[in-house]
Design a protein around this nucleic acid. Structure first.
Lengths: 164, 164
DNA sequence: TGGTATCAGCTAACACCGTTAGCCGTTGCG
DNA sequence: CGCAACGGCTAACGGTGTTAGCTGATACCA
């Protein structure tokens, strides 16, 4: 029998990825697990603690996706965008939120920063700028902020070219 | 006597800027106006309609801030960041949201895009990349995503230099 | 074996949210 | 005068996260 905690996290992740953050209520998570909402509080202190688990998952899997990319900025950027578009709700939860870094597994944040930092040859300021560029591109795309029908590929390559 | 509609929008804006989006409930808006929450629905069809007014205000004032900047990318970027840091909750509501562009005043979106587009000499792809860079920098900063104590000034200048 | 403490479920409830239904006094107009 | 529209109101609905308090089962220990 799988741990309840893991069942809860799995149910929350399914709901999040399927229908977004507001579909992931404590009651809907509980229902998916086959339990009533208050019982979740026997395993997690509050909803934020469940979301923290999802953040760790998102950060980890995103890091793996970036590490699996070919070296260089453009492949890294493509991997970044692919992950965000494939799992938009998880990406949002993972990145577009205050980061409770005190509660994160030791070293995860640094590891996540690694691929971009290496693509920029260890220059932290440039790496931050590139990270912001990628994050901004993804968020604006996910939020439907670019003009409808706009081809974003040229913007990505223009950005990557500028930073190289 | 000022229009009720304007009172409501003003109250909503005050609550938003003072304490963030979740402090801006229909009940708290109503209380500030001196009325009960259901009465708001005599003036707006729903909360989204109130938020739309705030989005228009935010977009307009941000556009004016950018237009007031010296020409060139770096001054434009500084103005962008200054606005976002000075009015973080309004910035969030205005930009980190699906944009109901059908309901926006005609031409506002294009006008908002103008300053950055001019700074990039009319090259749309580069302008989009720069916009994403600035938006990403601001969002990551507002969300406390950069390492605590990190000096972001070099990242901004590195980005602006790369795009110039 | 009996007693007890811990675990993990439950129901009921609280305070909040956006929103709707329906009532009512005031205002303005034909 | 009569009537309609406006803009308040209360009560309520279904949703949210969360807490209190009860209960049955399990595990451990004298």
């Amino acid at each position: 029998m799988v741990e309840r905690r893991e069942q809860i996290v799995a149910a929350a992740l399914e709901l999040l990825e399927a229908d977004g953050r507001e579909a992931m209520s404590m009651r809907s998570i509980a229902e998916r697990v086959g339990v009533r909402a208050p019982s979740l509080y026997k395993h997690f202190p509050d909803k934020a603690a469940v979301e923290l688990e999802l953040t760790v998952i998102g950060l980890t899997e995103m890091t793996e996706a970036l590490e699996a990319a070919e070296p260089g900025l453009l492949p890294c950027a493509r991997a970044y965008r692919s992950f965000a578009l494939a799992r938009p709700h998880l990406y949002r939860l993972t990145t577009a939120n205050p980061l409770p870094r005190l509660l994160l597994p030791e070293g995860l944040e640094d590891r996540a920063a690694g691929p971009i930092l290496r693509a920029m040859h260890g220059r932290a300021d440039l790496a931050r700028a590139v990270w912001a560029f990628a994050h901004g591109m993804v968020m604006l795309e996910l939020d439907g902020r670019f003009p409808p029908g706009a081809d974003l590929e040229p913007a990505w390559t223009a950005g990557c070219t500028a930073f190289q």
